[in-house]
Nucleic acid binder design. Structure first.
Length: 400
RNA sequence: GCCCUGAUAGCUCAGUUGGCAGAGCGCAUCCUUGGUAAGGAUGAGGUCACCAGUUCAAUCCUGGUUCAGGGCUCCA
């Protein structure tokens, strides 16, 4: 029996998603859950655009030699899904980096194009060991808010600083106010010469210092291709969740013989930065659900307002109020069932709806509505003021 | 991948010392038009995870598989 605050139980109670035996480690997103997923995705997309990323989409399957070249074949072959394609094997992508590298190869960038920032909501598949799966936290199919920055060496530090700026505001928009930073250095099993690692680690540490980040040092915890800065969120239960990351990679550009053309016409090797804000969208949703105990901030609630009519005579009044909210972009609906108000309150609460609006004969007569918040607080508010307040409450946080 | 525990209705679970399968919620129909956390009645809904074995008889015992929960390992 799952605890009622477990995101798997919340996902069911809020009718967001489910998992089932026929598709282990993969999510069935219900209509409400997909609303939440899309809100999160669109929020990140807007931020990426503001930060100068161009969104792309790359293939799901690649021939085995590409994974051999990237090093994923050596390091993660056991955790990759393979598909037969005639005489050869295709590997289902567990990461999007090689796809972005291929894309950049084809773009044949000049130094004028740098830093080249590519973003992708990358759907990835990993054949995680059976015992590792855990609800949305550890899936076999999930979506990364992935991005790669291809830049010249002098641009590395400024790009890392740029990434780190306003991150606190971004996470605060989801209700996470405690963000800690960790630096993960070269692991025992790695690709690339030690000189490359020396360079990569010193640049990343310098960037962290310039960005004013206080890093907790984690030697040996880096990726096989480079060191990482990790952004760790603390939730209400004090648990730590690594979500954001930026990783400095001098290895993959070399392995793929990636280059750009500099001002003198010479071919130069770019540096690659791997970065994500949420890591996995699915996992982030799980973390948010548990952090908020299912009571998501209004801007992320799949259903923001339920207008509960009391008595048949007030149903049209309730419909008009809901329509006004909907026109303003609010996710509002009317509960005009022939049920008691208690039942409507209970159902809206169980569904995680932040605002309940009561519209009955009294409200019709007074030209107002009665607002009920999640905590049960109630007050009468004139029609126009109530609409304005609800619309404002349902807008996303400005800085995020 | 390893250790432990489990799998019974759409969901959460009870139960059968081996002999016709149970509840609550949800769902359907009808009644009820209701004022802030469960209105009432009736009804439908099951290959007791899957595959073998033991047995007159298996949802129940045994083995295997799959999946799940807890822990470990791993997490690009």
């Amino acid at each position: 029996m799952l605890d009622e605050h477990d995101h798997r139980a919340l996902g069911q109670r809020l009718d967001l998603f489910h998992l089932q035996e026929e598709a282990p480690g993969m999510v069935f997103w219900h209509p409400r859950g997909l609303v939440l997923y899309r809100l999160l995705e669109e929020h990140v997309r807007q931020r990426m655009r503001r930060e100068g990323y161009q969104e792309v989409r790359t293939p799901q399957l690649y021939a085995q030699p590409l994974w051999e070249r990237s090093g994923h074949w050596d390091n993660f072959r056991e955790n990759m899904f393979l598909v037969e394609d005639g005489a050869r094997h295709l590997g289902v992508k567990p990461v999007s980096c090689p796809g972005h590298i291929e894309l950049v190869q084809r773009m044949a960038p000049s130094y004028r194009d740098l830093p080249l920032r590519l973003g992708e909501f990358g759907l990835v598949h990993r054949a995680e060991p059976g015992g590792a799966l855990h609800g949305l936290f550890r899936l076999r199919q999930f979506t990364q808010d992935d991005g790669h920055i291809f830049c010249a060496e002098p641009q590395v530090v400024p790009e890392v600083v740029r990434f780190a700026r306003s991150l606190k505001d971004f996470y605060a928009g989801f209700g996470f106010d405690d963000v800690q930073v960790a630096f993960s250095g070269r692991p025992a099993s790695r690709a690339g010469r030690d000189e490359l690692w020396d360079k990569a680690e010193s640049w990343l540490l310098l960037a962290a210092k310039e960005a004013g980040l206080q890093c907790h040092m984690q030697p040996g915890e880096g990726a096989f291709y480079g060191p990482k800065l990790e952004f760790v969120l603390k939730d209400r239960l004090g648990r730590a969740w690594q979500c954001g990351t930026i990783q400095l990679d001098l290895v993959l550009p070399e392995r793929f013989d990636l280059h750009y053309v500099d001002a003198s016409g010479a071919r130069v090797r770019p540096v690659m930065l791997h970065r994500a804000l949420l890591g996995s969208l699915e996992r982030f949703i799980g973390v948010m659900l548990e952090h908020h105990g299912g009571a998501l901030p209004p801007w992320l609630a799949p259903q923001q307002v339920v207008v509960a009519s009391v008595g048949e005579g007030a149903a049209d009044y309730a419909e008009r109020f809901a329509a006004k909210l909907q026109e303003a972009g609010c996710r509002a609906s009317v509960d005009r069932r022939g049920e008691s108000l208690s039942r409507k309150v209970l159902d809206a609460h169980a569904a995680g709806v932040p605002w309940l609006v009561v519209a009955g004969a009294r409200e019709v007569a007074a030209g107002n509505v009665r607002l009920r918040q999640r905590d049960g607080a109630q007050r009468d508010v004139p029609w126009e003021d109530a609409a304005a307040e609800l619309v404002a409450s349902c807008r996303p946080a400005p800085n995020a």
